[in-house]
């Protein structure tokens, strides 16, 4: 464990908590893409199947349980409890265009052709594009609540911090995983224009307005 990975995990934890607070306090999931949340739940389910078979540390297990529970819980809140506030009309990104290519790619490009490894690879590829429905929805609505933009900033930062973690591990541990690194770079790059808007607007107290 290193400071970059810890900061990344905490940023990821913060993002999920911010989202849950937003939905629970406003009792609404307006502006949130349910499709992205479904993709995140799939990412965690396919990545943490080894939760019971592969004990790393109490921290690792606790975080996996929280991420699994919160992502499934968020899907429940969006599609069942606060279903009336879910914005179907703007959450229209075709997630099959993300699921199929990442599934095929994980069958072709992986470290080992085994069920667990392919599911892990699929979850890495899927996570890199899972935010697209959410970014698409923000571009369609043309704006986002400030708490939603804080959520996106924390979520985008987490994988950016993981890139620093991979650089650190490469130089100090000689460890690197090219699949996770490439996918993590793609994932972080997808947030770039949002990061620009967040830093130039939201941090100045303005609302996140996308040029229509």
């Amino acid at each position: 464990m290193n400071i970059f990975r810890l900061a990344g995990d905490l940023s990821h934890l913060a993002a999920i908590i911010i989202l849950l607070i937003k939905i629970w306090k406003t009792r609404s999931c307006a502006g949130i893409s349910g499709r992205s949340q479904v993709l995140f739940a799939i990412v965690f389910i396919t990545r943490y199947l080894d939760l019971f078979t592969n004990f790393i540390s109490a921290y690792n297990t606790a975080m996996k349980v929280f991420f699994l529970g919160s992502s499934i819980g968020t899907v429940y809140l969006m599609y069942l409890k606060f279903k009336a506030t879910y914005d179907h009309n703007h959450d229209t990104f075709r997630i099959e265009f993300l699921l199929l290519p990442t599934a095929l790619l994980s069958l072709v490009l992986n470290h080992e052709f085994s069920v667990m490894e392919i599911l892990w690879t699929f979850s890495i590829y899927l996570e890199s594009v899972a935010i697209l429905p959410q970014l698409f929805m923000v571009s369609k609505t043309g704006e986002a609540e400030s708490i939603t933009s804080h959520y996106l900033f924390a979520l985008g930062s987490y994988r950016g911090l993981y890139i620093l973690n991979w650089i650190y591990r490469y130089y100090f541990e000689g460890f690197y995983d090219i699949i996770a690194i490439v996918a993590g770079c793609v994932q972080t790059i997808l947030y770039c224009d949002f990061f620009y808007l967040y830093i130039t607007k939201v941090l100045k107290g303005k609302k996140l307005q996308l040029p229509a």
Partner: peptide, 10 residues
């Protein structure tokens, strides 16, 4: 050796 490539990242 097997432990080496354990997935220890979240």
């Amino acid at each position: 050796e097997e432990d080496e490539n354990k997935k220890d990242e979240l």
